[in-house]
Design a protein around this nucleic acid. Structure first.
Lengths: 239, 239
DNA sequence: ATGACATATTTGTACGATTAATATACATAA
DNA sequence: TTATGTATATTAATCGTACAAATATGTCAT
């Protein structure tokens, strides 16, 4: 019928996406049924389903069997999922270094902001995290890594600025890519030293945030990340 | 056959994704044909195609008609596409403010890094951008916005740290969400004032980066963004 | 070895049929 | 009236077949 560039299903996908972007359909709204969309776009159900499937894969719509297709709010998981995957699949050997440098230069200011804006709920979450990492077995590197990441994510959340949390989370998730590497290069005695250092700095940062001392939060975070950088470089030597 | 939770196509999608994550298939590799995957997973071609289609929508594979399905490298566009969409669809009335605050607190340090690490190529791109925004018509708000965003993206690239560029780009793209709003609230005379201010600060930042003066780059970026924040708040008053 | 052509392979689109989950309307009971 | 259960209709999920269109492969002549 129409002269085309690209796949039919893709063109239809874009048209539906455009309608959503233009608020022609709002969050929660039900899209026309597959059969109706077939008529609307003069296409087979196959291509309509492929278009809807793509939108679903990207988190724009939710499809309920027996009910219909609904516009869904993009979740933060969806938003940062792609960037996490991008880092995960990246073969850039400098990725870890770049992530550490990014943290070293941006996180102190974030800690400073956290000290200014934190609420009671953030302190509760942070102190709970501290307890957990202290109690965490020295052998359970995976769990310790999780808690380490969580601590720093909690700090971003304490800023009260969701944009900061959103963009920093993928960078912080990369900790799981180098922390086990660092630990793997050290004997258990050294691992204990490193863990103690982490706990020491996390505690200091927590105290600074609690007492709304933004200068100190900045300073301790910076020292913490310098230490992280040092340990990473140490591990690099033996690579 | 198998007791299931969730959709068959989704389960297969995850299995294929897992295989890619585990480097069972590397970038560029050809996946089995649809028919082969049908046998492998004992499923109809329909569900196999839906699984592949989802992976394609997320940028993990490329499908070539008549040829096959290939593992593709995730592009940066793909990585930040979801987060851009997330911001685009966000109804958070504070989103713009949060983005400006994020820039105000993070970009000065980024400018400082740019001054330290910039290469000749970055200076060329930056000066070209400056020329263009100077020559840009005062009426062409859309173009000016594009160039404004580009300037700040170029600064992030001058840091030499792709992680910083990646996470800042979605935040910078939000400029297109508030700059026209700011301009819309001002008479053309004021618009000229704002544009002159932008050019003034961009020039100063450029000079600081060029002369590797990181302290000055930090300072001028901060002043620039304070101005941005002020203008945004002005526009807010009349909202 | 190279290029043209015929053939095979592979994905794109279409249609029809059946299954399973959900929504709706209605009848029934408290 | 309200609540609950049931029958019915709607809708998406899966399957299978068929053909079209783009690509890849092999053959043959030069």
């Amino acid at each position: 019928m129409s002269q085309n560039k690209g796949l039919l299903s893709f063109r239809i996908e874009q048209k539906i996406e455009e309608a959503i972007l233009k608020k022609q359909y709002d969050v929660g709204d039900k899209l026309p049924t597959e059969s109706q969309l077939c008529e609307q776009f003069s296409a087979s159900r196959t291509v309509i389903r492929e278009a809807l499937n793509s939108l679903k894969a990207r988190g724009l719509v939710e499809i309920k069997k027996g009910s219909g297709v609904y516009v869904s709010e993009l979740t933060t998981e969806n938003a940062i999922g792609s960037i996490n995957l991008y880092f995960e699949l990246s073969k850039d050997i400098n990725l870890v270094d770049n992530a550490i440098q990014t943290r070293l230069h941006l996180e102190p200011e974030i800690a400073s902001l956290a000290a200014m804006n934190r609420k009671e709920e953030h302190l509760i979450a942070l102190s709970h995290n501290l307890e957990e990492i202290i109690e965490c077995s020295i052998e359970d590197i995976e769990r310790e890594t999780e808690l380490d990441i969580e601590f720093h994510i909690l700090i971003t959340k304490a800023t009260g600025n969701p944009v900061i949390s959103l963009i920093m989370e993928p960078v912080l998730n990369l900790i799981s890519k180098y922390k086990p590497m660092v630990f793997g290069k050290h004997e258990s005695l050294d691992r204990k030293k490193i863990k103690d250092s982490v706990i020491k700095f996390h505690s200091r940062i927590y105290e600074a945030v609690k007492s709304r001392n933004s200068r100190e939060a900045y300073y301790e975070m910076r020292e913490h990340l310098k230490e992280t950088e040092k340990n990473s470089k140490e591990a690099d030597k033996y690579r």
